[in-house]
């Protein structure tokens, strides 16, 4: 029953789609096409990301992650966070479980906020796409302003949130 409950939102949307199909078939067909394509894209990109996160969980010791992303990691923290956030493809909600894992391993709040911000700003795999569709100047402003803004936000959030308090649940456990 709890399993079914988790598909509640999906079922409501499916019902909405059914109603739309009666009113306007072409819109419904287009919805199905876009949805199937993005689900396939996701199913293709997600397994390696989740597997890498699983391996990270098993192999990276807390002490070493604290060195790379902890309170005192300094410039390494910025580079390491930037690398982690920009190489992986996918929407921001994929970054949530990864951020939780990093927090669990001792990453500081500053770099977690910076990680989520950088993830939603720069994506190396689609950088070429942004450059070609919106131009060099636009892309440059977007990336530079975004990164500076989210780093400063990280500094601010660090004052208000405690690393341990943010850890509400363990993502590798069954919900």
């Amino acid at each position: 029953m709890t399993k079914l409950k988790r598909y509640r939102f999906f079922s409501i949307l499916l019902f909405a789609l059914l109603i739309i199909a009666f009113i306007n078939q072409s819109v419904a067909i287009e919805t199905v096409q876009i949805t199937v394509k993005s689900i396939l894209d996701m199913l293709f990109l997600l397994p390696p990301i989740f597997i890498l996160v699983g391996l990270l969980d098993q192999w990276i010791k807390k002490e070493s992650l604290i060195r790379y992303m902890g309170e005192k990691s300094g410039i390494y923290g910025i580079f390491f966070t930037l690398l982690l956030a920009t190489v992986a493809a996918g929407p921001l909600y994929i970054a949530f479980p990864i951020a939780v894992l990093l927090l669990k391993k001792g990453a500081s709040v500053r770099y977690i906020v910076f990680f989520l911000g950088a993830w939603s700003t720069v994506k190396l795999p689609v950088l070429v796409y942004e450059l070609s569709s919106l131009g060099f100047k636009f892309t440059l402003i977007h990336i530079c302003f975004g990164l500076v803004f989210y780093y400063l936000t990280g500094l601010l959030f660090e004052k208000f949130y405690d690393q341990q308090k943010l850890l509400k649940y363990d993502i590798t456990k069954e919900v």
Partner: peptide, 8 residues
């Protein structure tokens, strides 16, 4: 759910 929402 999110994928279907984006599609819609």
């Amino acid at each position: 759910a999110i994928m279907l929402f984006i599609g819609l």
